[in-house]
């Protein structure tokens, strides 16, 4: 079957709304998992990440795909959203990542400008699972006191993230996806402590 014949949302209006609320709640409550609408994704995209793409992308958005992402995912996104692709991570509104170990450094994406910090890249990070053996403690807006995560994100990511948050309001906002779940990491989420797992 051709990739483009794979359907998008079963109910485009309400599935996009449900997924938007999951993305919104994820950013508003960093560290708390949310659930997107379900769909059958193309090879290379997690269901929740595919749902986020259908919800956020259209002709007005420029997308950077990590080169490891399959051609069928690319043609599915083009067919269903009409988004533009770029090979330059600095010009991307959204970046889809599926191998975090070999992703570009965070400062290779667009952090916005002092007057328009919103003109930044949003990261859509696909993970095998949202739970992992590395612990991170976050604080910031959306978090009452602090929140502890057990996450597969490792030291190199958190080091870069911490360096990035020192440049607030410049920075990146990220969502992590696995299966139908999503976790939000707005640029305001500051690392208050962490410990590498085994």
């Amino acid at each position: 079957m051709l990739t483009t014949q794979l359907p998008g949302f079963k109910d485009p209006v309400h599935d996009a709304q449900k997924t938007f609320r999951a993305l919104l709640d994820a950013l508003a409550r960093p560290g708390i998992q949310q659930t997107t609408a379900s769909l059958t994704p193309p090879e290379g995209l997690k269901p929740s990440c595919a749902a986020a793409c259908l919800t956020l992308l259209d002709l007005e958005t420029t997308v950077w795909l990590q080169p490891s992402i399959s051609g069928s995912a690319r043609s599915w996104l083009l067919f269903h959203t009409g988004c533009r692709f770029t090979a330059d991570s600095q010009t991307a509104d959204f970046a889809v990542i599926d191998q975090i170990e070999i992703m570009p450094r965070l400062d290779e994406f667009n952090w916005g400008t002092a007057a328009y910090p919103e003109a930044s890249t949003s990261l859509l990070i696909q993970l095998p699972a949202l739970e992992g053996t590395g612990s991170a403690v976050l604080q910031g807006p959306g978090i009452l006191d602090t929140i502890a995560l057990q996450t597969p994100l490792r030291t190199p990511f958190w080091q870069q993230w911490q360096a990035m948050t020192e440049n607030y309001p410049l920075g990146l906002d990220a969502w992590c996806f696995a299966d139908r779940q999503v976790l939000g990491l707005p640029r305001t989420a500051q690392l208050a402590g962490r410990q590498e797992g085994q």
């Binding site: 709304q17 919104l24 958005t61």
Partner: peptide, 24 residues
């Protein structure tokens, strides 16, 4: 359309709302 606005308009407002939440 559900909630009156077309989907293209909702998407663009939704993207703005997400940035707004990220930069309080």
């Amino acid at each position: 359309n559900f909630a009156y606005l077309d989907e293209q308009t909702k998407r663009s407002i939704r993207r703005a709302a997400l940035k707004a939440v990220a930069i309080p």
